[in-house]
């Protein structure tokens, strides 16, 4: 399992490396993009996932001790925590979708000024306009960030959002696989597979994968959500 996790580390390493390269190039855009995300859901999700890592170690312990009720309980708890995480995540994606924070090639026209200050009509992507709205609604520093940005920079925030969607999307996929494994273990537990207590090792090996999913989130959290500026007044679901 550890060997397999190495490949997972390098898999995510690839996208993290790309993220780093662009963050060096476009610090402002990344800050703005992160500011537009929903920090409340992300924070809740962080704690959910950490708790699920905790419950699965309890499940291992129960299997080791031969406490079958406990084993099932903790497996169910882990599955529930994971599922709630996914529900929140779905809510968050839906929120982003409603706010129009989805990169696309759709264009629209806006009033703006060119370098010499002359008013012009400029073709920009719908995404950039939506981003401007979202940031302005958040007021305070978020609005200040948006005000300082040019349209071209707003366009480039799409790169941040490509990272946001692909990284969290891959994480969600991994979670779904992990939940599948957990359900399978639960069925095995129900069938009494873990009666011989030395078979706790199967859960332990599977738990490595689950912890790894948690580990990925631990890094996604600061890199995606906490790279911007958030204030407590504007928290919402």
């Amino acid at each position: 399992m550890w060997l397999f996790l190495v490949t997972e580390v390098l898999f995510f390493g690839g996208v993290l490396c790309a993220y780093t390269a662009y963050r060096i190039w476009y610090p402002k855009e990344f800050e703005a993009g992160s500011t537009a995300l929903n920090p409340l859901i992300a924070t809740i999700n962080t704690f959910l996932l950490l708790s699920s890592s905790f419950t699965i170690t309890l499940a291992i312990r129960s299997a080791y001790k031969g406490e079958h009720a406990g084993l099932r309980l903790w497996l169910v708890a882990t599955i529930v925590l994971g599922t709630v995480f996914l529900c929140f995540k779905a809510r968050e994606y839906y929120g982003d979708y409603e706010e129009g924070l989805v990169p696309s090639q759709q264009k629209t026209l806006v009033d703006t000024v060119d370098e010499s200050g002359k008013p012009i009509l400029k073709e920009v992507s719908v995404f950039a306009v939506n981003l401007k709205h979202v940031l302005e609604e958040k007021e305070g520093k978020a609005k200040a960030i948006s005000d300082k940005m040019t349209w071209n920079e707003r366009e480039r925030v799409q790169i941040f959002f490509m990272f946001y969607y692909s990284m969290t999307g891959l994480h969600v996929l991994h979670m779904i696989v992990g939940l599948g494994l957990l359900v399978w273990q639960l069925i095995l537990a129900q069938m009494g597979f873990f009666r011989p207590t030395e078979r706790y090792i199967y859960i332990e090996v599977m738990s490595l994968y689950w912890h790894f999913v948690d580990l990925v989130w631990i890094f996604l959290f600061p890199l995606l959500y906490m790279a911007g500026i958030h204030s407590v007044e504007h928290l919402h679901f």
Binding site: P39, T43, F47, L50, F54, P222, Y225, M226
Partner: peptide
């Protein structure tokens, strides 16, 4: 410990 660190991460984030 992990939860404490997560709290710290959140604080820093805000």
């Amino acid at each position: 410990i992990l939860a404490g660190l997560a709290c710290m991460a959140t604080l820093i984030g805000f």
